[in-house]
């Protein structure tokens, strides 16, 4: 906007401000306005400018509020977490393997490893099935079967995580218990339930990427005499690769941040799990389990756990942006 004002002769500057406000490129709007006789535009200008100004203020405030929320969360996390990290010592905090607040031992390495294990497990469980489902919904399902499945996926996205956790506790944990020692509250159970929970994210994002692949690629493949499956797997799916990657990364973010369902099925011992059937505590579980009664350094150490989680989410978001940029570049 400032640019457009500077580019326009002073006499028509206010006109340009009115028309340029719609978001037109500065120089172009200025030139167009300059070509119109000023008298013809002046009477209509005022209410237009007022309305636009009000809308701009409203949207600007809304945008500012959400940015402010993010900024405040960052500020809160850092202000409370960083001093704790400093007091505990960053290496001791990140790589210490013992979490025993009663003895002032705050090593969250088991929880970092736990989060990574459970998230990786969820990816292994959820991604292949999710991507194949997306392919099926986008390119194979027809008519009523397709719309039935689509609404099923939407429903899956709407189930509260505590219900997933309950399902995990009642069905998956006893099932896992069949496979070996332990209670069934384990990495495996958490991975299975998280794998199911990320399905809707992976499916819907991957499906919209697949749906967006231009028909001419598919038709071009068919015209070479290949069959439907081949055209879908070798041309359509690779063409949607960046969208599919985005689906996987969004699923990753969903899995690493999930709390309630994991707490219910993971066993929550703050130890580095030595097998799939071993109990595990994630960073999210660590915070939610102890926040209720923690005080002083213990409380701050939990917030610092949140900082580490936040850094992970930040990395995932950056990865997502890189993938999207690459997709656009193509």
């Amino acid at each position: 906007m400032l640019f457009s004002l500077l580019n326009v002769p002073p006499a028509s500057a206010s006109t340009a401000a009115g028309s340029g406000g719609a978001g037109a490129p500065g120089a172009g709007a200025g030139l167009a306005a300059a070509g119109v006789p000023a008298a013809a535009r002046v009477p209509k200008r005022r209410p237009h400018v007022l309305r636009e100004g009000a809308a701009r203020a409203l949207f600007g405030t809304a945008a500012a509020l959400s940015i402010a929320a993010v900024a405040l969360i960052c500020l809160f996390l850092l202000a409370n977490g960083v001093p704790a990290m400093a007091e505990i010592g960053l290496p001791e905090f990140l790589f210490g393997t013992t979490w025993r607040p009663a003895h002032d031992l705050y090593g969250i390495f088991p929880m970092i490893v736990g989060s990574l294990y459970v998230t990786a497990g969820a990816m292994i469980v959820g991604v292949p099935g999710g991507l194949l489902t997306a392919l099926y919904l986008s390119r194979f399902a027809r008519g009523r079967t397709g719309s039935f499945l689509r609404s099923g996926v939407e429903l899956l996205a709407g189930i509260p995580s505590v219900v997933y956790g309950f399902f995990g506790l009642v069905i998956i944990v006893p099932f896992v218990r069949l496979f070996g020692p332990g209670t069934g509250l384990s990495v495996l159970a958490a991975s299975l339930i998280l794998g199911i929970m990320i399905l809707p994210t992976v499916i819907t994002v991957a499906q919209s990427a697949l749906d967006a692949v231009p028909a001419r690629y598919y038709e071009g493949a068919l015209a070479l005499g290949v069959d439907h499956e081949h055209a879908v797997f070798k041309v359509v799916a690779p063409a949607a690769a960046s969208g599919i990657m985005a689906a996987i990364v969004l699923g990753l973010g969903r899995a690493i941040g999930e709390t309630m369902a994991v707490v219910m099925v993971a066993g929550n011992m703050p130890i580095i799990p030595d097998s799939l059937l071993s109990g595990v505590r994630t960073m999210t579980a660590n915070i939610v389990l102890e926040m209720g009664y923690a005080a002083d350094l213990h409380r701050e150490a939990l917030i610092a756990t949140g900082v580490v989680l936040f850094v992970f989410i930040l990395l995932i978001t950056m990865l997502l942006n890189v993938i999207r940029k690459r997709g656009e570049a193509r």
Binding site: R216, Y217, E219, A223, P238, A239
Partner: peptide, 12 residues
């Protein structure tokens, strides 16, 4: 074989 109105090389 067929060649279409709009060139449609695959994105590869």
């Amino acid at each position: 074989g067929m060649v279409f109105q709009q060139p449609n090389p695959f994105p590869m």
